[in-house]
């Protein structure tokens, strides 16, 4: 592990367990301490120590198979859907270890939303897609639902394009619109953190740009952790960047520094395109 990530882990450990840790004056929402994960016998994550700040965009980059998607899926425990997964260590969300046996995974996932690599709207109307989450939480009042749907679609900058056809099936939207719909669906449950797993990798450049702009907009109200295979994207929109390699964090730094002056030679090799 590089000096940088060592420093990071020390930083986390000194700060201890309270919610109100300070890192450049910002509060940490998520942190993982010595997080290890195995798929059956494969050691996919090796002692990950990371901490994510409120209202920041953190990018996670690295070559295919480095564990970045696996890692982000541990943060809302979606990784548990894979049979044979085992985790050790600690994942603290707002000061509580979400890996604790009695931690309610459903409660976690309403505070930590997720946007997937491939847009996955439900085969329902645009309206019902966005209202899906609020309805789980017992909101039946039509007026309240209308408000949430409008607010969420506006938040995902999709409202103007769909306001006249909310009852249409979501499958009629373009790929980029579908992905923004999934973001709106995620906003409707009012999460604190939004996890994004390569949200633009299946999109054309124009749709990608819209999502990137949207992410920067969302940063005001949400903390965003985004996996991306696109280094330019990470450089453009993130505050901090973590570089994963073979299940380890090689470097975790301010994005500007990581891309202009990386401390680890492997980071430099990767961002300059020597491998990956």
């Amino acid at each position: 592990m590089s000096p940088q990530s060592d420093k990071q882990s020390i930083n986390v450990k000194i700060n201890g367990n309270s919610v109100s840790q300070k890192d450049n004056g910002k509060r940490s929402v998520f942190e993982t301490n010595d997080l290890n994960l195995w798929y059956s016998d494969t050691h996919a994550l090796k002692g990950i120590d990371l901490s994510f700040n409120e209202n920041e965009v953190t990018a996670i980059i690295g070559p295919s198979g480095c564990g970045k998607s696996t890692y982000i899926k541990t943060l809302n425990r979606m990784v548990e859907l894979v049979p044979g997964v085992r985790t050790t260590g600690e994942i603290k969300f707002k000061g509580k270890n979400i890996l604790d046996k009695d931690f309610q995974v459903e409660a976690l996932r309403t505070q930590v939303g997720m946007v997937f690599q491939k847009a996955n709207p439900f085969p329902k109307s645009i309206y019902d897609n966005v209202a899906y989450g609020p309805r789980i939480h017992g909101i039946r009042n039509k007026k309240v639902l209308d408000e949430i749907v409008e607010k969420s679609l506006q938040g995902a900058s999709l409202w103007d394009e769909v306001k006249d056809r909310l009852k249409d099936n979501a499958f009629g939207l373009s790929g980029g619109q579908q992905q923004r719909l999934c973001i709106a669906r995620c906003l409707a449950i009012e999460p604190d953190v939004i996890l994004m797993d390569e949200p633009t990798s299946a999109l054309d450049p124009k749709s990608t740009l819209r999502i990137e702009e949207l992410v920067q907009e969302l940063q005001k109200d949400y903390s965003i952790i985004m996996v991306t295979h696109n280094m330019q994207q990470a450089a453009r929109i993130s505050n901090k960047t973590a570089f994963f390699l073979n299940g380890e964090v090689v470097e975790f730094e301010e994005t500007d520094k990581l891309f202009t002056n990386p401390s680890d030679s492997r980071t430099e090799d990767y961002i300059s395109g020597r491998f990956g």
Binding site: M78, L108, R109, F116, F122, I136, C182, R185, I189
Partner: peptide, 24 residues
């Protein structure tokens, strides 16, 4: 990926089955 989409919104497995899996 539809099931995952539903679960990631904080639903239970049964709710996902009722609202997403069974209709399809």
């Amino acid at each position: 990926n539809l099931k995952e989409g539903s679960l990631a919104l904080g639903t239970t497995r049964w709710y996902t089955i009722k609202k997403v899996v069974l209709p399809l």
